[in-house]
Write a protein that binds this DNA or RNA. Structure first.
Length: 261
DNA sequence: ATGGCCCTATCGTAGGGA
């Protein structure tokens, strides 16, 4: 089965791209971030017509996350347990696979704007809350995948300019420590389980011909719990939709579990 | 050298993104 993540930068603006991408890449589960719409605007009908069920958690203008799935979704939960958040940033659900239940945790992590800012402080407390909550979630759900837009480039090789952007947003030691703390819970960066091209990124700035010059960051991730590691057979970034007209600034990332069949 | 785009909300411009 295949599970993917994609920050679409407005589902209103990108609905046709999502439908086109799913038609070409019929993944079992697609996690979306930055819906930028309230729940009453969610295009459930058209997604169902494409064969997908959906759990969604939106808000007006900003943020918003959804899980699309060919198979039924159950036990849907919103945001981080025990953490009061005015933003709609996390949605979780369980999908039943041939190898048992899979808990899917889809997150639109805080951007943080600038180290030292209030928004950066919010990012740090949000990440701390996420870690504490996930520690318990992993006990309840051994087969767990945490995926989404992390807004963290975990290593220097995940940035087009690690020297020039040293200790700037997405590159700070504090953010990377949080990423490592998630891995210390027993999560593995699925992308790095496999050989990958150098300068593999999942986001490129709209400005400065970012995509054309491959000035990007790898900030969209799929982390898997220990029982899923031997089941992983591939993890790839699909740059194709980044070349489409009026694209999202992010590309989808896909993990394949349990070789098709 | 600097900043250069896109989306939303809303109708000229501001906030946010990364």
């Amino acid at each position: 089965m295949k599970i993917a993540t994609w920050n679409v930068n407005s589902l209103t603006a990108r609905l046709q791209h999502v439908l086109d991408w799913l038609a070409a890449n019929p993944v079992d589960v697609l996690c979306l971030q930055e819906l930028k719409m309230s729940d009453d605007k969610f295009p459930l009908d058209v997604l169902q017509s494409a064969g997908y069920q959906a759990a969604y958690f939106g808000q007006k203008t900003y943020n918003g996350v959804a899980i699309l799935s060919l198979a039924p979704l159950r036990d849907v939960a919103k945001n981080i347990g025990g953490f009061t958040d005015e933003h709609s940033r996390v949605i979780s659900a369980t999908v039943d696979t041939e190898h048992g239940p899979l808990r899917v945790v889809n997150g639109y992590f805080v951007n943080g704007q600038t180290p030292g800012s209030d928004k950066f402080a919010y990012k740090m407390s949000w990440l701390s809350a996420l870690r504490g909550w996930l520690e318990e979630e992993l006990k309840a759900h051994p087969n767990l995948v945490l995926l989404g837009d992390f807004n963290i480039a975990p290593e220097d090789r995940d940035s087009f300019d690690p020297v020039g952007l040293h200790e700037t947003i997405h590159h700070t030691t504090e953010e990377r420590n949080h990423f490592h703390a998630l891995m210390a819970l027993g999560l593995t960066d699925a992308f790095r389980l496999f050989e990958q091209p150098e300068k593999s990124f999942s986001w490129w700035d709209y400005r400065m011909l970012g995509y054309q010059k491959n000035r990007g960051l790898r900030i969209d991730h799929i982390l898997v719990s220990a029982p899923l590691v031997p089941r992983a057979v591939g993890c790839t970034i699909d740059r194709v939709p980044r070349k489409w007209e009026k694209p999202s600034d992010h590309a989808p990332v896909t993990l394949e579990l349990d070789r098709a069949g």
